[in-house]
Deep mutational scan, measured.
Amino acid sequence: PEEVRRLVEELYRKGVSPEQVKKILKKQGIDEREIEKVLRRIG
């Protein structure tokens, strides 16, 4: 979803590592598979 992409990109631009991005967003209840999809697209 758009909102997940925005959150991931925001953290990524701040220099947060992909592993940390995953941890942070998982705590917020976001599906890990969604996060990984976005990270793959960015990375």
Rank of each mutant, 00 (worst) to 15 (best):
I30M: 11
E2R: 09
S17V: 08
Q28L: 12
Q20G: 12
L7Q: 10
R13D: 12
E32P: 09
R41N: 15
R33H: 12
E36Q: 02
K23A: 14
R13H: 14
L25D: 00
E19V: 06
D31R: 04
G15R: 03
E34I: 12
G43F: 01
E10G: 05
G15H: 06
G43K: 08
I42F: 07
K26F: 07
E32T: 06
E36H: 02
V21L: 10
E19T: 10
K27E: 15
E34C: 06
G15I: 01
V8A: 07
D31L: 05
K23M: 07
R40S: 14
K23R: 13
R6G: 06
L39N: 03
P1W: 13
K26H: 10
L7N: 03
Q20P: 00
K26L: 15
V16F: 13
R6E: 07
K22V: 14
E32N: 05
K23H: 12
V16D: 04
K37N: 14
L11S: 01
I30E: 01
K22R: 13
K14Y: 07
I24H: 05
G29R: 02
I35D: 00
K23N: 13
R33M: 11
K26P: 01
L11C: 02
K27Y: 08
K22T: 11
I42E: 05
G29D: 03
G15W: 01
I35F: 02
V4S: 02
E19A: 10
S17P: 13
Q20W: 11
I30Q: 03
K26C: 03
E9V: 06
L25K: 00
P18F: 10
L39A: 05
L39K: 02
L25A: 03
L7E: 03
E36G: 01
E2Y: 04
K22Q: 06
Q28E: 09
S17F: 05
R33I: 10
P1T: 14
V16G: 04
E34Q: 08
E10D: 13
Y12A: 09
G29Q: 04
I42T: 04
P18A: 13
Y12I: 15
Q20E: 14
P1D: 13
I24M: 09
L11A: 03
E19K: 10
L7T: 05
L39D: 02
V16N: 10
D31T: 07
R33D: 14
R5H: 10
V8D: 00
R5Q: 13
E9S: 04
E3L: 13
V16I: 13
V8H: 00
I24S: 04
D31P: 11
E36K: 03
P18I: 12
K37I: 09
V8Y: 02
Q28Y: 10
V38K: 01
G29M: 04
L39P: 02
K14F: 06
P1A: 12
V16Y: 14
V16H: 14
I24Q: 08
K26M: 15
E19P: 07
S17A: 12
G43Y: 01
Q28P: 01
E2T: 09
